[in-house]
C-alpha cells in the first residue's frame, strides 16, 4: 500500500509543496479543511494552499442557489471528501432510502475521494435528534451495524469511512471497548475508519480509558483519514464543541497516531466560532509540521 507518487502533490489543487521524495500512501490527500460558508468567496478568490476540502453532505442536499454554486466552483479547484451526519447507521429504524438517494446524487455530482459518516445513531421512530448518539458496544449492535454498512456500500458502490464519535455515557449493555467494536465493524463490513483524534481524547477523558490503547487497538491498514478539532474542558469532563483551536493534548495524541498509522489525510473541523481562513490554515500548518517532524516526510 505504500506507493511512490512523485507528482501527486502537484496535481492537487492548491498544494504549493514541491516534489516529495518520500513514499506516500496511495490514499494520502494531504492536509485539508472543512469547507464553511464564511470562507466560500475567499476560497474562490484566493485559492488558498489547502490540499482538499471536506464538505458536510447534508448542507448541500438542496436543489440549487448560492451554496451549491459555490460548492461546484470550489470542487473544480480542489479534491473533496463528503462527510455526513444523518446516515444513522446504528439506528433500529430502517435505513432512510430517500436520504441514501440524496447522498448518491451528491456523490455523483461531486465525485468525492470518499464518503464518511459516524459510528453512531441519530434518532429512532422517525424522529431525528440531529446528534451523534453513542452505540452500546455489544454483539447485537455489531451485527446490526455491519449489515447496514454493507447495504450502504452496495448502494453507493464504494466502501465508506466510519468515524468514532465523542461520547459522554457508557451503557451497561456494552460488552467490549469502543475500539474493539470499531475495529470489528471495519473488519467485517469492509468499511474504512476515519479516526477523529479529538474525539478519542474527549472520550478517553470522559470514560477514563487510555487514548493510546485506543490507537493500538485499531488495525493499521483500516484508517484512511484523521479529524482534528477543538473541545471545551470542564475539568471533570470534556465536551466536543468544535469551537476552539486544537488543544495541546490533542496535538500530542495526533503525533502518537501518526507514529502508529503513518502519514494520513488530516483535516481540521471547525463548526462554531469560525475564525478567518488564514487562522485555520495556520493551524493546519501545525498539523503539517508535526507530520513532517514525526515522519520525516516532505521536508526539503
Amino acid at each position: 500500500m505504500w506507493v511512490v507518487l512523485l507528482v501527486r502533490s502537484d496535481q492537487r489543487g492548491g498544494n504549493t509543496s514541491s516534489a516529495v521524495n518520500n513514499a506516500l500512501p496511495e490514499h494520502f490527500l494531504g492536509f485539508g479543511l472543512g469547507l464553511r460558508t464564511d470562507h466560500f468567496q475567499e476560497v474562490i478568490d484566493t485559492k488558498p494552499p489547502v490540499d482538499w476540502f471536506e464538505v458536510v453532505s447534508e448542507n448541500f442536499m438542496v436543489n440549487g442557489g448560492k451554496p451549491k454554486h459555490y460548492l461546484h466552483s470550489i470542487r473544480e479547484l480542489y479534491p473533496m471528501v463528503m462527510h455526513g451526519v444523518s446516515l444513522s447507521i446504528g439506528s433500529t429504524d430502517p435505513l432512510n432510502k430517500a436520504y441514501l438517494n440524496q447522498l448518491k446524487v451528491l456523490v455523483n455530482e461531486l465525485q468525492p475521494e470518499w464518503v464518511s459518516d459516524h459510528l453512531c445513531w441519530t434518532g429512532a421512530h422517525q424522529v431525528n435528534s440531529h446528534d451523534l448518539l453513542p452505540m452500546p458496544y455489544n454483539n447485537e449492535a455489531l451485527d446490526h451495524i455491519v449489515d447496514r454498512i454493507s447495504h450502504v456500500q452496495d448502494y453507493l458502490g464504494q466502501p465508506i469511512l466510519m468515524e468514532n464519535v465523542s461520547s459522554y455515557i457508557t451503557y451497561v449493555e456494552s460488552e467490549m471497548t469502543e475500539w474493539e467494536f470499531l475495529n470489528e465493524v471495519a473488519k467485517r463490513s469492509g468499511c474504512y475508519i476515519l479516526l477523529d483524534i479529538n474525539n478519542i481524547y474527549v472520550s478517553a477523558r470522559n470514560h477514563n480509558f487510555s487514548a493510546q490503547d485506543y490507537l493500538n487497538g485499531i488495525d493499521k491498514d483500516k484508517v484512511r483519514q484523521f479529524h482534528l478539532a477543538g473541545h471545551t474542558d470542564y475539568g471533570d469532563y470534556v465536551i466536543d464543541t468544535h469551537d476552539h483551536d486544537v488543544a495541546d493534548p490533542v496535538w500530542t495524541l495526533y503525533k502518537a497516531a501518526l507514529e502508529r498509522f503513518g502519514l494520513m489525510s488530516t483535516m481540521i473541523e471547525r463548526d462554531d466560532n469560525i475564525p478567518p481562513l488564514q487562522d485555520l490554515i495556520a493551524e493546519l500548518n501545525i498539523a503539517k509540521r508535526i507530520a513532517q517532524n514525526t515522519l520525516n516526510y516532505g521536508v526539503r
Partner: peptide
Amino acid sequence: KNSLASLQKTMM
C-alpha cells in the same frame, strides 16, 4: 440488558 431498540427508545 436492553435490546438496541429499547435502549434507543428510552434515550429518545
